[in-house]
Each structure stands twice: as structure tokens, then as C-alpha cells.
Amino acid sequence: MTNPTAPLHCPVCAEAADPSHRICEACGADLHTPPSHRGHWLSSAAPPTPCTDCGHPEFDPHGYCRQCGARQTRTSDRVELDMATIGAATDYGKRHHYNQDALAIGRHHGTTVAVVCDGVSSSTFGELAALAAAEAGIAETLDALTNGHDTGNAAHRGVTAAAHAAAQAGTAHPDNPPSCTFVSAVVDTDHIQLTWVGDSRAYWIQDGHATCLTVDDSTIGRLAAMNVPADDERYHSPYAAALLAWLGADAPPLEPNMRAIAPTGPGTLVVCSDGLSGYFDTDDRLATLIGTAPPVKAAAELTEWAREQGGRDNISVIVAQFPPEPATAPTQETPA
């Protein structure tokens, strides 16, 4: 146990904490976790509750009640996650019946991690792949950081674990297994490591300008990234918008896109599903929307804005502050 009289900051979100508390009031992390712990993360998984139809507590792996057969989605329809310098919000929108997106945020010492996965709606139970991938991805990334891997290595291990978890989620559906996109960001004090498969995106906002950092894994995305003019006929092929890469049991071999950037100054990172980015006419639209609110509030505001635009898809947004630690952050923890 820590000395109850010593001043204490949460090892996860750096908020000042009352040493007599077991968990941080700001983010829910265990205040007395030994330093070797593999970090702390939160996901958009729905808390386990009994069946809303019959009250039975058990569900099969697909989410069907073992008593009455009513399905309970394992992803939250709507949730906000707050870890101070990184915050997230997701909402199932106005057209879908439930949320096929999943997201997770986490922290290991001074490094924050964001993962967004968008369940592909043409697959069966895409959210099972999305949630499995998001949770496995963030857990493995934090684990690798704990074990001393650099951010690039940790991110690669994370996407590999996510791909495995998404494929495992599909074993019961050989014909049309659940599948999802993946985008992760590992943010430390010097740079941001991005890793993605599919069309979920990351944006960098600095000095009133926003830039998309990712290239969609689709014909349109790749043509645009090569600055091919908009009148090129390839933009209009029937499958131009179709995903060329995804995670799941029927996915092509894993070749994640990886990119590291070293920002020249403080700014904001936004990681999101196409439920948000689909409403941007230009990248700078995002810069006009994002204010100075704390990350979780900014994420919730962006989510609400996407709903106001029509909410035709599930919306998932993570906002991370760069650099991740406030200048006053404690640099050492109290040993256990």
C-alpha cells in the first residue's frame, strides 16, 4: 500500500487523488496499481447486464440470451470515456439499430493509446469483430509498451493481436464472418504513431488547420492519396468505395498501414469512424468544429454534430491532446 499521507496523483490520468481512495475519481483507474502493471484502458463494451426481456444473466458468444433468445449487443449504443488528456464518445446514430463501432482508450505512464474499429455492416455481427479487435489491440499495445517496446513495435503488435481477435470472433460464421476496420494511435511526448486497416481515420489539428493523416484502404482513398485528378474514371468504378483491407476471418493477409509523425508543436489528434468523417466536406471542417473543450467533451460535441448532420452511420470519435501529459504532470510514482 502507498503511504496514506503522501500526496498522490492517479498513475493513469494524472489527476490529484485522495490517497485513502482505492480508485481514481476522474477515470476509475486503480490508484495503487504497481508500476509494472500493463497500463489501464477503457472500452465501449456494454456493461454486463441481465437480459432485458427475461432477466436471465447468461448469453451465448453471439450475444443471444441463453434463456429466451433475445439478443443483447455487446457494444454500448452510446457512451463517453474520459481519461483526462484523451477522451472518447460513440453513438449509434439515427439509422442503425445498434452500434457496430467499438473504441478503446488507454494510457501507460506518459503515453496515450486510441483504437477505433468499425464493424462492417455487410458482415454478420460486425460489432463482435470490432469489439474484440479494439480490446485486443489496446491491451496488446499497452502490454508491449510496458515490456519496453518502442511505440512502432507496440502498435504493430497491437494490430496483429486485433487481427487475430477479429478472426476468432468469426469462427461460427464461415460464410460471412464478422469483420471490421482498425485504426490506432500511440501518442507520446515526441510523436504520434498511426496504424490502420480500412477506412477509419485519424486527423491532426494544429493552429486552426486539420489534416487527414490516414489513407483509406479503398480505390478512391488510394487514388486521392496519389493526387489523381477527380475526373479520373477509376473514381467511378462500381467498387471504388469498397474496402480493400479489413480485419476478420475472411480478411486478406494483414498488411497494416503505419505512419509516424513528429508534430512541431502542441495540437489535437482526432481518431474516428466514417460516421464522423463522412460528413466532412474538407479536412478543415474539423478544425472549425473542434474548440478548446477537454478531450471527452470535444469528442461528445463532434459526435453530436455528426448526429445533427443525419447520423446515417454509427459514430465513434477519440480526441487526444498532444503532448499527452500536462507540463505539470508528475514524473514519478510512489512505489508499492
Binding site: 451465448d60 453471439h62 443471444y64 440470451c65 433468445g69 433475445a70 439478443r71 439499430h97 445498434y98 461460427a172
Partner: peptide, 29 residues
């Protein structure tokens, strides 16, 4: 049970068995 808006229910789960060994399974939703 009569379907209500947004319902997603399991109708039945089917498996094929030889003796007590399950060989394959799928579900009807």
C-alpha cells in the same frame, strides 16, 4: 414471440452429432 421493433432474436441453434460428438453447428435468427 411476436417481433417488436429492433428485435434480434435467436430462433434456434442447430448442430449435427455423431454419438455425442458435435460435427458442425449454425443458428437460425
Amino acid at each position: 414471440p411476436p417481433i417488436r421493433p429492433h428485435d434480434d432474436r435467436l430462433a434456434a441453434r442447430i448442430s449435427v452429432l455423431a454419438g455425442t460428438t458435435e460435427l458442425a453447428r449454425d443458428m437460425i435468427t
